[in-house]
Amino acid sequence: MNSRMKGLADAGVSIWLDDLSRSRLQSGNLQGLIDDKSVTGVTTNPTIFAAALTGGDQYHADILALPKGTGVPTAIKQLWAKDVQDACDLFKGIYDASNGYDGRVSIEVAPGLAYDTQATIDEAQELYDLVDRENVLIKIPATIEGLPAITETLGRGISVNVTLIFSEDRYRAVMDAYLAGLEQADAAGKDLSKIHSVASFFISRVDTEIDKRLDAIGTDEAKALKGKAAIANGQVALAAFEEVFSSERFAKLEAKGANKQRPLWASTGTKDPSYSDTLYVSELVAKGVVNTMPEKTLLAYADHGEIGTPMEGTGAQGRKVLDDIAAVGVDLADVFKVLEDEGVQKFIASWDSELVTAVEKAIASADN
């Protein structure tokens, strides 16, 4: 067991891998990361699955086995669900040993549904039924239209990974949607202890967008704030989490077995090569959080990562940094809107230009 990764886990961080592919499953690579690097879960998204599907011929046999006339959207869901199902089985021991806290694998609703509440609800249920594993998390984006879908899905007893969160305001709305979902589930007689959720707060993209704007402002004061926004945003998010989940509203649900919706740090690979390649791991350590890392970042931390200052109690510090960034002229509300819109569009582009094209070609080849 790698001592650096074990130290991170011992500090309270659940280490999840932000990648999944059939080759990773079949080669034993994922099992090796579980055994050697303290990995206890997996996240994936349309871009990741597109890379897996186009990266080799491991899916050819399953495509050949699809019934004649299977449409592309159905084929994508079935192929993706199979990988997620196999990964869920691989993590079943961790899931059982942690009472559902870890051992989780995510699958995402089609990104084109991000602004359609009812279609998101329907597909969340379909994916849950298709994977048919208790340790699956259904990923739903934190768009305005996604919020009621999150509540309804949780109310049905389905565990959810809320994705594409960038701002404190939207994060608070996500936590409210979670609590409302638990209340619905409780009213329906569901076992609240079986319902889990994570709220995926995106990290590196915040620095990328804000650094660009600070450079455009160009003052020494602005440039001195580069590389600080993402960590500060995480600090503010953790403070909001601590507030909401120490509330009387949650206490009533917790007494019935409810779990906290844990913060998950996503997009934790650094984009700027001048920043440490472990920045968004070392500086985002707190008890009870998840950090889902690309393999490159995970291996970098395993090699030379060090735990920074724990995040607990740093909310005011983070808020001051964000206030300072706003004071030099960065419109944070616009930043967060741009990042959400871009996040949805990037996933739609991966789905349309890579996933759909790859499956269409594979089905055509199989038919011939």
Score class of each variant (00 low, 15 high):
R249V: 07
I140M: 03
L284W: 05
G257F: 07
Y95K: 01
A349I: 00
G234V: 05
S353Y: 14
E354K: 15
T43I: 06
R133Q: 12
D122F: 01
P310S: 12
N368Q: 15
V285N: 01
P73D: 10
S159E: 13
L64W: 07
H60I: 13
K320Y: 04
G318P: 11
A224Y: 13
L64C: 12
T278N: 09
G189S: 09
H60F: 10
P73N: 10
S167F: 10
L53D: 00
R133I: 04
T54V: 03
H304Y: 12
D334W: 13
G12M: 06
Y115P: 05
G157N: 12
N368I: 15
T357I: 15
P46C: 05
P263W: 12
E342M: 12
M311I: 14
S276K: 09
D352S: 12
E123I: 02
R104Q: 11
V244N: 00
T309G: 09
I231F: 07
P148S: 05
A232G: 07
D83Y: 08
V206W: 00
K252I: 11
G7D: 13
A255D: 11
G157D: 12
D132C: 07
N259L: 11
L298S: 01
A180L: 15
Y280V: 08
G329F: 06
G257V: 12
A349P: 07
M293R: 14
I140W: 01
R133E: 09
E295T: 11
Q235S: 08
E168C: 14
E354G: 15
A266S: 14
A119I: 03
D211G: 10
G55K: 03
F202A: 05
S21D: 13
N368R: 14
V236S: 02
D89C: 02
S21I: 13
V198A: 02
L355P: 15
V174C: 15
A240V: 07
I363Q: 09
K6N: 15
G146R: 02
D191Q: 07
V174S: 05
V244I: 11
